[in-house]
Design a protein around this nucleic acid. Structure first.
Lengths: 244, 244
DNA sequence: CCTTGTCGAAATGTCAACATTTGAACATCA
DNA sequence: TGATGTTCAAATGTTGACATTTCGACAAGG
């Protein structure tokens, strides 16, 4: 559906003004997009096998392209595949949440400080408008999906401002998993999530506006770690009686 | 040459005792191994194109396998490829060194603290023996290649002890680039590198043995950041007069 | 002289057929 | 009965051929 790769929320600034930068990306990308959406919306369940022939015929492309698309999703951590045993959707348990969020905390610490180091008024206003949008969405957005999209968009902007392609690559290595985990959050922890969302991001913006500092680094790290502590226990679904 | 993927230095503990864990990995892995070594030993220069047909005929495999191998190297950051324009060996400049080492510092901070959190006597002794091996290699190892291998092996063990697969994946996303950058170091900064190597790692082991602490986190971060400050200016070769 | 359009070779993207591996059901034997 | 060996289908790994795109050279036009 969404032609732009990682855009859950369209940007409203002056960029992309009508020129439609469509630079073609190949079938593998579209295959990856389609499967990613299937996983992220729950159309395919965790642990479910992703058979190349099925996907190829269903998407009407060759197996080679499906193969390449699956490799991309493996890079994002959404899929795990083994030699001659195919690919399966990952099944996240509490330990996986800990892993993902600990790495995310480390990355976000660097990203936030770097972003603060080369922050511009335009970017700052951009971040602020996202926080305000969160505030507005708190009342309208029943299912919390818009809230989640704004949350991720905020952090994407931070990474963008950090201006470090290796950092962005690393972030993309856990981003989809974060998104998948957050899905659990809006299912089982709506209230708590909503309560903290705006306040924490507002704090982050305030600290970012003051430039890099140890206080900011700690805040960014803690922002993620608090989420980890909440989420890890929440994902323990039917795992105790079906450990394998 | 080296059948084991990331092992520059064979482990001397009890593992791998004769059983030869060869678990097959497919042609793409061997292709990736071969090209990686070609890049890391300088047989193919930075910026040089890696043509699929050439590699396929030279390695006597199909283009599909080469393609998959190149995708792996792209994941490691050793290669960059664009739509219908093929893959090229990366050409690292000062800014790239900054990016790689800033991300590495963030990862290493987490890895070292996590490793300290679940350190065992065996692992600690293992790390210590690597540091001692560095001390011995200081005199014998003329070209510094063994020193470099020991250095990387040390940090690999730290990540292994951290026991976080997402963290290890992120590390692998910059590890080969780190290795490529270090090659410059042993070419142009032998003396400085040798002076600090053992002392810094010895400090790290000492702090790790005392368990997780903010001091350890700072030390790990600083260990990498010091390297960054030394290396970034060193890689500025023929880049000023040929920016594009 | 600079710009623009066409052409063609070289390289990559895509595809469908063939080869290999795996896991499990089934049969066999101690 | 339990362990072991065999067989077979389903799925992936691998391959060579075909389609598409890029980028240079070259010529025509302003």
């Amino acid at each position: 559906m969404c032609a732009l790769h990682f855009c859950d929320v369209a940007r409203d600034d002056g960029s992309n003004n009508g020129v439609r930068r469509v630079r073609r990306r190949g079938l593998a990308h579209e295959v990856a997009d389609h499967i990613r959406e299937s996983i992220l919306t729950g159309r395919v369940a965790p642990g479910e096998p992703l058979r190349e022939v099925d996907l190829a015929s269903s998407l009407d492309v060759s197996r080679g392209s499906v193969r390449e698309g699956l490799a991309m999703l493996e890079r994002e951590g959404l899929v795990r595949s083994e030699w001659h045993r195919g690919a399966r959707v990952i099944d996240l348990g509490p330990q996986d949440v800990n892993e993902v969020y600990m790495v995310r905390a480390a990355l976000e610490r660097l990203a936030t400080v770097s972003a603060a180091a080369n922050m511009t008024p335009t970017r700052l206003a951009d971040l602020d408008s996202l926080v305000q949008a969160m505030g507005r969405a708190l009342e309208d957005d029943a299912d919390g999906l818009t809230l989640l999209a704004l949350d991720l968009a905020f952090h994407d902007r931070v990474y963008e401002a950090a201006d470090n392609s290796r950092l962005t690559d690393s972030w993309h290595g856990v981003r989809s998993q974060v998104r998948l985990i957050q899905l659990v959050r809006i299912e089982r922890d709506q209230a708590h999530y909503r309560d903290l969302l705006v306040a924490e991001h507002h704090d982050l913006v305030r600290l970012i506006s003051r430039g890099p500092s140890e206080e900011l680094a700690r805040a960014a790290e803690e922002h993620v770690d608090a989420a980890r502590r909440v989420l890890a226990p929440l994902v323990d679904h039917g795992r105790s009686d079906a450990p394998r």
